[in-house]
């Protein structure tokens, strides 16, 4: 475990969709400025856990969440917490690149504006450039900032979405299968970018691609399901250990391709 204070801590998280117990009793600590990958077979609750971290599950009807998600020592599910502010500080990048049907510039500037930006045009320009540089996209788009974001390739669109996420200066970036819709080269570029971003941000990534988890992450959490199809955490540890010498035989079976 990292020596630094954790960026976020989940305690005894249980998630229900109506009567269905989707996630059981998950406790996990995410080290700061590290990449933690959540892996596991389909239906193990990994995306549910990820979405619980910035209250994206609030948007789903009939969902019930028990337990705590401690961010800076404060439970983000406390009644006095504003979920919009939570989502600014804990940003998210989705599986399919989803730029708005607007210019590259506007895609990045949008989040900054809706978060109450009051600066000058020049300051906004600078923020957009910084975010695009941070997402390793600037050199490719600096001459066409006012073209549609949808004109970019899939990999570029995903980096645009990462630029949009980091423009509002979050502390944590959640990524839900960020490269599953991309070709192998674009995937490796996103992974390199994630390593660069981890210097400044804490990243939590859900991936069904365990090779990707192995390549990119510092820590890995393996989730599985029990006989009632309820997802739960099986093992958490440094990625190097999980992929060379897992402690739990279920993790071993999964990463060696003998189950799941």
């Amino acid at each position: 475990m990292s020596d630094a204070a954790p960026a976020l801590e989940i305690r005894n998280l249980n998630v229900y969709y109506g009567d269905f117990h989707a996630v059981r009793d998950v406790s996990l600590t995410f080290p700061r400025n590290k990449i933690t990958a959540i892996i596991g077979p389909s239906g193990c609750g990994k995306s549910t856990v990820l979405r619980s971290i910035n209250r994206m599950n609030d948007l789903i009807p009939n969902v019930r969440i028990e337990g705590q998600v401690l961010f800076e020592g404060k439970n983000i599910y406390d009644p006095d917490v504003d979920p919009v502010e939570v989502r600014r500080r804990i940003g998210m990048v989705f599986q399919k690149p989803n730029p708005f049907p607007k210019s590259i510039y506007e895609n990045v500037a949008w989040g900054v504006r809706i978060n109450g930006f009051r600066g000058s045009k020049a300051e906004l320009d600078a923020l957009v450039e910084e975010a695009l540089r941070g997402a390793a996209l600037w050199d490719e788009v600096k001459d066409k900032l006012h073209q549609s974001g949808l004109s970019l390739s899939g990999g570029q669109q995903q980096r645009l979405c990462i630029a949009r996420a980091i423009a509002v200066r979050p502390e944590i970036i959640l990524m839900d299968e960020p490269a599953s819709a991309l070709d192998p080269i674009a995937t490796l570029r996103i992974e390199d970018l994630m390593r660069d971003l981890a210097r400044e941000y804490t990243i939590i990534v859900v991936t069904h691609n365990m090779q990707q988890a192995a390549r990119v992450s510092d820590y890995t959490a393996f989730f599985s399901t029990d006989e009632t199809r309820t997802g739960h955490l099986v093992e958490f540890g440094p990625t190097e250990q999980i992929f060379t010498n897992p402690k739990d035989p279920r993790t071993e079976a999964y990463i060696t391709g003998r189950f799941g």
Partner: peptide, 9 residues
């Protein structure tokens, strides 16, 4: 080297 083989494909 083993970690690199295991994690970096």
């Amino acid at each position: 080297a083993i970690v690199a083989i295991a994690t970096q494909q």
